[in-house]
Design a protein around this nucleic acid. Structure first.
Ligand code: DGT
Ligand code: MG
Ligand code: MG
Ligand code: ZN
Length: 581
DNA sequence: GCCGTTTTCGGCCCGACTGTTTTCAGTCG
C-alpha cells in the first residue's frame, strides 16, 4: 500500500494515542500530533519527497527521528513502533479515549483496578457499579461515563459523532446564534471555531457572546443557551461557558465575556488550537501572556478588546480566520506579508453552471438573470457531455444547438454575458468526450473526471495531463473528485497536475459546492505558488446554486488566494484574453 | 520528540468546569 500524507498522519496520530493512553510524556505525544498536522497540511506528497531523497527534518515539527520514521512508513507501508504498540496493547483500548470525560489518567485507573480494556468492558464496569468506588471517581462520574458511553453507542450507529459539512453546521449554528442574540443584555454573539475558519468539516459549534450586564448577564445567557429548544443534553454549564449537545446534531460551546475581552475571547475560540499555542508561545518570548481575556504584561491588560489590537500588539497585521492554522500566517503577519484574500465582492462571474439542457433545473435566461442579479458580468454555461448519460449529457449535435441558443439569448441580454462552455468528460485514455470540431466553437471547457476513479495513481495522473494537451482544454473541474464524508479523492499526483497546468496555461477549478470544495486549501496554495490561476466555480444546477460561491471562497481563502490568483475575478475582456491558448 | 541570533538542555499555552476533593487533579476548549 502506498503511503500518502493522510496515511502517514493517521499513523502518527495512532502512535500519539497509544503513547498517551500508556502515560507517556505529554510533549512527546504532542510531537507526534504536530508531525501529523504538518504532514497533513502539505500539498506535496511526502512520499514523493522521500523518493527524491529530499530532507524532511527541515519541516516544522519533524526532526531526525520523525524524518526517519516517515521514510520507514513510505518504504515499508507501516511503522515498526506502531506495530509494536498494537501488539502490546489490547485491540479495543484506544476506543476508551473516545468516551467524553475519559483521558489517559482515568483510563489508567480503570485498566489497573478493574481490568477495563474496551468499551464493552467499560459498559460492564459501569453497569455493575464498580466504577464509583474507584479513587477519584464517584457516583456522578460513573453516571456521566454511562451517559457518554450511551451517546457513543448511539452515535456510532447513526454517525452523529462524525464531523459534519460546513453548510450543515451553519444550519445548526445560525438559528442558535439568533437565539442567543435575543437574550436580554446580549450585545453581540459571533460564531468562532472551525466554522469561522471556514473549514470544510466542523466537529462542534463554537460561539462567543458579549453581555453588557457583568452582574446578572452571563448567568442569564448560560440559562438561555441551555434552554434552547434543540438542546438534548447540557454537558456542562458554568459562569462563563457552557457545552450542550443538540438533538440529532453537533455539540455547541458558548463563551460569554465582557466587552473589553471580546477580541481576545473571539481569538481564543476561533483557534485553531495550533495557532493559539503558537501565538501564546511567542507572547511568552516577549514577556507577556495571552489568554481569552486579553494580552497581559504582568497584571496590566495591554490589548484584547478587538482581534486587530491583539495582533497589532505583537506587531502583526490582522490575520483572517481562514489562515489561522499555524502554517506560516503568524510569521507572515509579523512581516506584513499576509495575502489580501479574495472576497465575494471581487468575483465577476461564475465559470461552471448547468441548465435544463443536461441535468440543471433552469433555462438559459433564468440562469443568466440569476447571475446578473448577483452582480456578475458573465456566466459560463457548461452542461455535461455525452458520457454522463445519467445527466442527459450532450452529444455534438445537442451541444451545437445549445451554442446557437446561447448566442440568441445573449443578443437579448444586457448587463450579463453568457459564455459558451461544456463540462467535458475526460475519458479513460485522456481524450475528451467530444470532437475538437465542436469544442473549438466554445469559449471554454470545464474538463472533468467522472469515471474510473480507481485507476492507479500514475495512470490517473497521466490521463489528466494528457487531457490538458488538448488545445480546447481550459479548466480542470473538481480536480480530485472527492466528496466530503462520502468519497476519498482518487489517487493522483497533484504536484504533477499543477505543474502540467502551469506549463500549458490551463486552469484548475475550485468547485464551490460544500460537498466538494475541490481543489482543497493545500492545493490552492500550491497552485498559487506555481502560478496557476484557480477558477472558483459553483457548478450550479439551479439559480440558487450560484449562492454556494461563498463556500468556495472560504476554501480559496484558506488556500491563501488573492483576487489576482482567481480566474473569475477578471473582467470579461481580461478573461477572454486568458482563455486563448 | 522538537527546538534554539540570548539556550544543544530544559523548556514546551493557559484557563473553565466537574467531581471529589479538605486543596486539587483530570479533562477539555
Ligand atoms: N489555547 C488553547 N485553545 C484551544 C485549545 N483547544 C481548543 N482551543 C480553542 C481553539 C479552537 O479552535 C477552539 C474551539 O475548540 P474546538 O475543539 O471546538 O476546535 P475547532 O472548532 O477548531 O475544531 P472542530 O471542528 O470543532 O473540531 O478552542 C487548547 O488546548 N489551547
Ligand atoms: Mg469547534
Ligand atoms: Mg468546541
Ligand atoms: Zn458540473
Amino acid at each position: 500500500m502506498p503511503a500518502h500524507n493522510a496515511d502517514i498522519a493517521r499513523i502518527f496520530r495512532n502512535v500519539a494515542e497509544y503513547l498517551e493512553i500508556n502515560g507517556a510524556n505529554a510533549f512527546r505525544v504532542r510531537a507526534y500530533e504536530n508531525a501529523a498536522r504538518t504532514v497533513e497540511s502539505m500539498a506535496r506528497d511526502v512520499a514523493d519527497m522521500v523518493a527524491a531523497d529530499e530532507d524532511l527534518s527541515g519541516l516544522p515539527g519533524i526532526g531526525e527521528d520523525l524524518a526517519k520514521k516517515i521514510r520507514e512508513i513510505v518504504d515499508t507501508g507501516s511503522l515498526p513502533l506502531l506495530e509494536k504498540l498494537r501488539a502490546e496493547n489490547p485491540p479495543g483500548l484506544l476506543e476508551l479515549l473516545r468516551v467524553e470525560g475519559l483521558g489517559p489518567k482515568r483510563v489508567g485507573i480503570l485498566r489497573e483496578k478493574l481490568g477495563v480494556e474496551s468499551l464493552d468492558d467499560l459498559r460492564k464496569a459501569v453497569d455493575s457499579g464498580a466504577v464509583r468506588d474507584l479513587e477519584g471517581f464517584g457516583e456522578k462520574s460513573e453516571a456521566k461515563i454511562g451517559r457518554a458511553l450511551s451517546a457513543l453507542e448511539k452515535g456510532r450507529v447513526t454517525h452523529e459523532m462524525s464531523r459534519m459539512r460546513l453548510d450543515e453546521a451553519e444550519g445548526f449554528a445560525l438559528p442558535l446564534l439568533d437565539h442567543i442574540r435575543a437574550v436580554e443584555g446580549v450585545v453581540r454573539a459571533e460564531p468562532a471555531g472551525s466554522l469561522r475558519r471556514r473549514k470544510e468539516t466542523v466537529g462542534d459549534l463554537d460561539m462567543v457572546a458579549v453581555c453588557d450586564d457583568p452582574e446578572k448577564g452571563p448567568a442569564r445567557v448560560m440559562d438561555a443557551f441551555a434552554a434552547y429548544d434543540r438542546v438534548e443534553e447540557v454537558v456542562s454549564k458554568g459562569e462563563t461557558r457552557a457545552t450542550v449537545r443538540l438533538r440529532n446534531g453537533p455539540s455547541a460551546d458558548l463563551r460569554v465575556v465582557p466587552a473589553e475581552s471580546f477580541g481576545a475571547a473571539l481569538h481564543y475560540l476561533t483557534g485553531s488550537k495550533a495557532h493559539n499555542v503558537r501565538l501564546r508561545g511567542m507572547a511568552e518570548d516577549q514577556g507577556c501572556k495571552v489568554n481569552e481575556y486579553g494580552v497581559f504584561r504582568g497584571e496590566e491588560r495591554v490589548a484584547g478588546e478587538t482581534e486587530e489590537d491583539l495582533y497589532a500588539f505583537f506587531g502583526m497585521d490582522f490575520i483572517p480566520p481562514e489562515l489561522r492554522e499555524d502554517t506560516g500566517e503568524l510569521e507572515a503577519a509579523r512581516k506584513h506579508r499576509l495575502p489580501a484574500l479574495v472576497t465575494l465582492a471581487d468575483m465577476r462571474g461564475d465559470l461552471h453552471a448547468h441548465t435544463d439542457a443536461s441535468d440543471g433545473r433552469a433555462g438559459l435566461e433564468e440562469m443568466a438573470e440569476a447571475a446578473r442579479s448577483r452582480g456578475y458580468d458573465y456566466l459560463a454555461i457548461t452542461d455535461h457531455s455525452q458520457a454522463v448519460t445519467v445527466a442527459h449529457g450532450l452529444d455534438a449535435d445537442r451541444l451545437a444547438a445549445l451554442i446557437d441558443a446561447v448566442d440568441r439569448v445573449n443578443d437579448g441580454l444586457s448587463g450579463i454575458t453568457l459564455l459558451k462552455g461544456c463540462e467535458v468528460d475526460i475519458l479513460e485514455d485522456g481524450s475528451l468526450d467530444l470532437p475538437d470540431s465542436i469544442l473549438k466553437r466554445l469559449d471554454l471547457t470545464v474538463c472533468s473526471v467522472h469515471s474510473r476513479f480507481g485507476l492507479p495513481r500514475d495512470a490517473q495522473t497521466e490521463r489528466i495531463v494528457r487531457a490538458m494537451d488538448n488545445p480546447h482544454f481550459t479548466i480542470l473541474g473538481h480536480p480530485t473528485g472527492r466528496l466530503i464524508g462520502k468519497r476519498e479523492p482518487y489517487a493522483v499526483n497533484m504536484e504533477r497536475v499543477i505543474a502540467a497546468a502551469a506549463e500549458r496555461g490551463v486552469f484548475l477549478e475550485l468547485n464551490a459546492h460544500p460537498e466538494r470544495l475541490d481543489l482543497d486549501d493545500r492545493h490552492c496554495r500550491a497552485a498559487k505558488e506555481a502560478g496557476v490561476l484557480v477558477a472558483v466555480s459553483t457548478d450550479a444546477h439551479s439559480p440558487g446554486g450560484l449562492d454556494t460561491m461563498r463556500f468556495g471562497l472560504g476554501q480559496a481563502r484558506r488556500g491563501w488566494l488573492e483576487a489576482k490568483d482567481v480566474l473569475n475575478t477578471r473582467s470579461l475582456r481580461e478573461l477572454k484574453k486568458l482563455l486563448k491558448r
